[in-house]
Design a protein around this nucleic acid. Structure first.
Lengths: 279, 279
DNA sequence: TCTTGACCTTCAAGTAGCTTGAAGCTTTAG
DNA sequence: CTAAAGCTTCAAGCTACTTGAAGGTCAAGA
């Protein structure tokens, strides 16, 4: 029997933690002196403590561990817990990898530019997302707007609102020509669905996965398309100045969609996939 | 200007979080009605909020982000922060990978055994660790103990105590023979050092890295070597029953080293690297 | 035997980044 | 005009601890 300080040295666990585990009833000393309150542990208890720490290392929370060591858990429940944990860890791994990517981008950027950028152009990484969309070539602005408006109505009628995310467009051609716009547009979805929406005999919207983008340059455009060239040129000069290169079609995500009579309040996020030109 | 509810929908950020950011002075509404206290945001502020969220996505804490957006950070400081973050993320990635491994081991184990084991044999993953050690073949127990004892004295005299971890041994041969024990022993180190310790003309201890073990079966032995066979046979039967295979030399880590007169209180952790026999 | 210092006790508060809930006021739609 | 939805502040809760204050206990040396 040893006092808490020695046991904490042996087990390589801070005494405060042992007291805490005692307090929450997870792991208690062999004996507590009823006069002084001193905790006395036996080295035999190391085995138990190690089991607890091993489970904690798996990423389990203390509460489930408590039930585990008290044997209140069926094998099936245990299997469920572990499978859940596994899925969580896999997610975390993915998320961390993306994060690492983003941090590295920033670092490279900083090395080249020497200062932190303070304009409105921002690097992001974009996750893959299901996209209920159609692709077509439009002759002019009026035709496009009409198409979009009709699509909006049809979709909101046929698809439950909470599945629908933001309205978005992918721009395949050059927008700076006045005609023949090659566009894909539709709604981002909050979770993948298997559905199609028929707009007419010839045009059907389908769900596909909009691929993830490791690094994208993004900018916000406030107001209607008349401000569009501003944001595009901001992105264009930024990309040139910072030694990146466009590697895919741009996207516009409608953060605040235009409402009739309030078009000037609309907000669009413009996103371009890029990659760093390796020095 | 919109109220907090609508802004929260647009920005996809809970209102409670916006209030919190206001409270800590990280991101405040454009205007607060002095009569009602209502917060009013402008859509233009989305750009600022998005910058903040992007930095948060990098894994930065809110406090540094606050200083960043208030531009109280030099590029060099920023570089330092990011480099630190990068290192942290890389660590996390490693740790998560190990964790995933361990969880998968447990799951496989559970699938084969159908129940959670409740004896004292536990699966762990072991990190790589620097090891100040020497390897020799010993003729018999007495010779071995003498060697160990001399080594302990010399090392504790020559190396600062706080660098020294636990005493440990790697067992290369079969211990069940009575002679010719092929052993490596010495002290685990808390951080890597570049040093050698000469025990005699012929024997010199050096620091080398004891490799990490993805999956190890471990057991605790309480008491002297006379209990040793118990733990070894426990591990042996466990490994057979659970369809694992030994893939490297075993280790003994002295958690509570023997003290003269109190040998029966010693505690040793026995570790064997294993791998699952793929079904 | 006394003192000193190391060690132990409990209890309260702090950590990060929020979320939840209660009690009460304001705005908007019908 | 009323009801519902939306807003306010303030307090407490979450995880897994750590830190610190105030005070009691133990072992060794003088």
């Amino acid at each position: 029997m040893v006092r808490i300080g020695e046991f904490s040295k042996i087990a390589q666990v801070p005494a405060s933690q042992l007291r805490y585990y005692d307090e929450i009833g997870l792991f208690s000393p062999m004996r507590i002196d009823s006069e002084t309150g001193y905790r006395y542990y036996s080295v035999q208890q190391l085995a138990q403590l190690n089991r607890i720490l091993a489970l904690k290392d798996l990423g389990l929370a203390l509460d489930p561990i408590k039930r585990l060591v008290e044997k209140e858990v069926s094998p099936d429940e245990m299997r469920g817990m572990l499978a859940l944990k596994k899925a969580q860890i896999e997610q975390t791994l993915q998320a961390e990898a993306v994060r690492l990517n983003a941090v590295e981008s920033r670092l490279q950027l900083l090395d080249r530019e020497g200062a932190f950028q303070d304009d409105d152009v921002v690097l992001k990484s974009l996750p893959a997302q299901p996209f209920l969309s159609m692709r077509r070539t439009y002759g002019n602005l009026v035709e496009t707007l009409a198409g979009i408006s009709q699509m909006g109505k049809t979709v909101t009628q046929q698809v439950e609102a909470k599945a629908l995310g933001r309205f978005a467009a992918v721009i395949y051609g050059e927008l700076f020509e006045d005609s023949n716009w090659d566009l894909e547009f539709g709604f981002l979805l909050n979770h993948s669905l298997d559905l199609t929406v028929a707009l007419s005999e010839e045009t059907v919207m389908e769900v596909r996965e909009l691929p993830a983008v490791a690094t994208a340059v993004t900018a916000m455009r406030f107001g209607g398309p008349e401000n569009g060239h501003l944001s595009y040129s901001a992105i264009g000069t930024w990309v040139e100045n910072h030694q990146y290169r466009l590697i895919g079609p741009g996207r516009e995500v409608f953060v605040v969609p235009p409402r009739p009579g309030h078009e000037s309040e609309m907000v669009v996020e413009i996103q371009f996939p890029v990659e760093a030109l390796s020095a």
